[in-house]
Amino acid sequence: MNLAAAHPGFLSPTGVEIVFVLVGVVTLAAAVITVTTRKLVHAALWLVVALGGIAVEYLLLTAEFIAWVQVLIYVGSVVVLLLFGLMLTRAPIGDSPDADSGNRPVALAVALASAATLVTVVVDAFRTYWIDLDASVQGSTAVTGESLFRHWVLPFEALSVLLLAALVGAIVLSRKDGPRAAGPGPVRDPDATGPAAPAAPDQPDTDTGPGSGTDAEGRR
C-alpha cells in the first residue's frame, strides 16, 4: 500500500490518461455495436472503428510500430477480407433478424460474469502500478526492428513459413473442384448436385457469386 502513495492517484489524471480513456470509450462502444448490430456490413464497419481505436491506444502507449502494423494488417486487410466474406456469402445489406442466436441471454450472463471477475482481479492487482511513458522510447521502428531481428529471428522466419502454409491452404480450400478434379469436366457431379445445383434455377446468379471468385482463385 505504501507504493500507492509514491504514484499519482486516479483523481489527477494526466493528459495521456484522459486521451486514453476517451479513445477507450469510443473503442469499447464500437466493439459493443459490432457484436450487437443486426446489419452485418455495419458490424464490419464498426469493427474498423474499434481496431483503429486500438491502434491509437498503441500509439498512446508509445508502441508506434505495432500501431502502424495494426492499421496495415487489421484495418487494411482483415476487415477487407471479412467484407469479402460477407459479400461472397450473400449477406443481406439491411437488417438480418437472425443475426443473434437463441442463447443470447446465456452469452450476456457469461460475458458480464467474466467482465466483472476480470475487472475486479485486474484492478485489485494493478491499481498501484504506473507506466513510465517518458523515460525512453519503447516501441519505435528502430527499437522494435532491432529486437525482432536480433533476438526473434527464428520465430520470425517460422512465422513466414506459417503464412506460406496458410496461403497455400486457403487456395486449396477455396478451389472449386478440389485436388481430385484435375481431369476434364465436372468430376464432383454426384456431390455437387446435392447442395449447390438445386439453388441454381431459382437464383440465376448463384454461379456468378461465390463460384466466380473462387474459380478465378483456383485458376490462378
Partner: peptide
C-alpha cells in the same frame, strides 16, 4: 499512465 487503464480496457474488450 496507470497500468489499470489498458488492463481494464483489454478486459472489457475481451468480454465483448
Amino acid at each position: 499512465m496507470h497500468l489499470a487503464y489498458p488492463a481494464v480496457l483489454a478486459v472489457l474488450l475481451f468480454s465483448v
